[in-house]
C-alpha cells in the first residue's frame, strides 16, 4: 500500500494503461505540454510522446467525435474534458454516437472509449463550471458511468474503464483530487465496474453516497454512531451499471435509507435508486426513502450560498434521524 492523492492515483492508472496497450491514447485540452489543467496527466507527454498524449484545440464536440471514430477502428481513446461542464458541447457524440453505435450497427462496432475529467461542485466558480451531470449520462443505455470516491477506487476503476469495450464516462470530483488514501501496490490492481463498495457497515440505516458525498456520509455516520445510530455507507462507485443488489441487501438489513448526492434532485440518480428500492424492497422499508440532494438551483458564486447548495454532514445526520424516527 502506498499513500497518495487521488490525482496521483489517476496519473498512475493512465501511465500504466498507456504503457500496457499501444492502442490507448490520451487526448484533450492542456493534457500534454501544460501537464494537465488539474495535473492529472503530469509527465505523460514526456514519457509517451505527442503521438499518444495529444493537446487539442478547444473543440469538445470535435475531439469527442474524433475519439469515437478512432474507437470504431480499434483504438482505445481516453478523451479528457477539462471539466465535465464542457462535455455538454460534446453530448451529441457521447450520446448519439458512442452510446448507440454498437446497437444500431447490430453489434458490429463497439466503442472502447473513456470520457474522463473533473466534475461536480468546484470552489466558487458559479453556475457554468460547478455542477454534477452524471444523471444525464447514466440515463442512456450503452454508456457506463463511473464516479470514484477514494484514490484506490480511482485507480482501480479507471484502469478497468480503459480496458472496457464500452464507452465509459468517468467523472472525477474536482474537490477530491487532493484527497489522500492508501492505494494497493500490485502491478495489475483493478476494480471491476458495476460493483458497489460498503464503505462502512452498520445496522440501523443505510446511506447511499457517491463521489464527494462519500466522505460526507462517513462523517455523518461517525456522528450518528455517537448518537446511538449505526449506519451502513454504500458507495455504488459505478452509477451505470448500478449494483442494485448490494443496496437492496443493505436496505433489507437496516430498513431505512438516505441517499446523498451533490447533484440536483429532479430526475437524479438518487431518484432512480429510490425507485429501485421501492420496487424491490418495499416490504422491508420502515420509512420512506429520503434523498439529500444538492439545492435545485444553479450553483451560486458567493461562498455562503455555495455552501448552502451542497449537502452537508448535518443534513445527512438530520435525514438519517428522520428515517430512524428519532426526531
Amino acid at each position: 500500500m502506498a499513500m497518495m492523492t487521488m490525482r496521483e492515483a489517476l496519473n498512475q492508472a493512465l501511465r500504466e494503461e498507456l504503457e500496457r496497450d499501444e492502442n490507448v491514447f490520451l487526448m484533450g485540452e492542456e493534457v500534454a505540454a501544460y501537464q494537465g489543467a488539474y495535473k492529472v496527466t503530469k509527465g505523460l507527454l514526456d514519457e509517451f510522446g505527442d503521438k499518444r498524449v495529444i493537446d487539442t484545440p478547444i473543440t469538445e464536440l470535435g475531439f469527442a467525435g474524433l475519439g469515437v471514430g478512432a474507437a470504431m477502428v480499434g483504438l482505445r481513446p481516453i478523451i479528457e474534458f477539462m471539466t465535465f461542464n464542457f462535455s455538454i458541447l460534446a453530448t451529441d457524440q457521447i450520446i448519439n454516437s458512442a452510446a448507440k453505435m454498437l446497437y444500431m450497427s447490430g453489434g458490429q462496432f463497439k466503442i472502447p472509449i473513456v470520457f474522463r475529467g473533473p466534475g461536480g461542485s468546484a470552489y466558487q466558480v458559479s453556475s457554468q463550471h460547478s455542477q454534477a451531470i452524471e444523471s444525464w449520462y447514466a440515463y442512456f443505455p450503452g454508456l457506463k458511468v463511473v464516479m470514484p470516491s477514494t484514490p484506490a477506487d480511482a485507480k482501480g476503476l479507471l484502469k478497468s474503464a480503459i480496458r472496457d469495450d464500452n464507452p465509459v464516462v468517468f467523472i472525477e470530483q474536482e474537490r477530491m483530487y487532493g484527497n489522500k488514501g492508501e492505494v494497493p501496490d500490485e502491478a495489475d490492481f483493478t476494480i471491476p465496474l458495476g460493483v458497489a463498495d460498503v464503505k462502512r457497515e452498520g445496522k440501523d440505516a443505510t446511506i447511499v453516497a457517491r463521489s464527494l458525498m462519500v466522505p460526507v456520509a462517513l462523517k455523518a455516520a461517525e456522528e450518528l454512531e455517537k448518537q446511538g445510530v449505526s449506519c451502513e455507507v454504500i458507495d455504488p462507485r459505478t452509477i451505470r451499471p448500478l449494483d442494485v443488489e448490494t443496496i437492496i441487501s443493505s436496505v433489507k438489513k437496516t430498513n431505512r435509507v438516505v441517499i446523498a448526492e451533490e447533484s440536483h434532485p429532479f430526475c437524479g440518480v438518487a431518484a432512480e435508486i429510490s425507485a429501485e428500492i421501492n420496487e424491490r424492497a418495499f416490504d422491508y422499508l420502515d420509512a420512506p426513502v429520503r434523498r439529500v440532494s444538492g439545492a435545485d438551483v444553479p450553483m451560486p458564486y458567493a461562498k455562503n450560498l455555495e455552501d448552502l447548495a451542497i449537502p452537508s454532514v448535518e443534513q445527512v445526520v438530520k435525514a438519517v434521524r428522520e428515517v430512524a424516527y428519532l426526531d
Binding site: G62, G65, G67, G69, A70, M72, V73, P77, Q93, S97
Partner: peptide, 10 residues
C-alpha cells in the same frame, strides 16, 4: 464528420 475524422486519425 468528427467520426470520419477519427477514423482517419486511427
Amino acid at each position: 464528420i468528427p467520426l470520419g475524422t477519427g477514423i482517419a486519425f486511427g
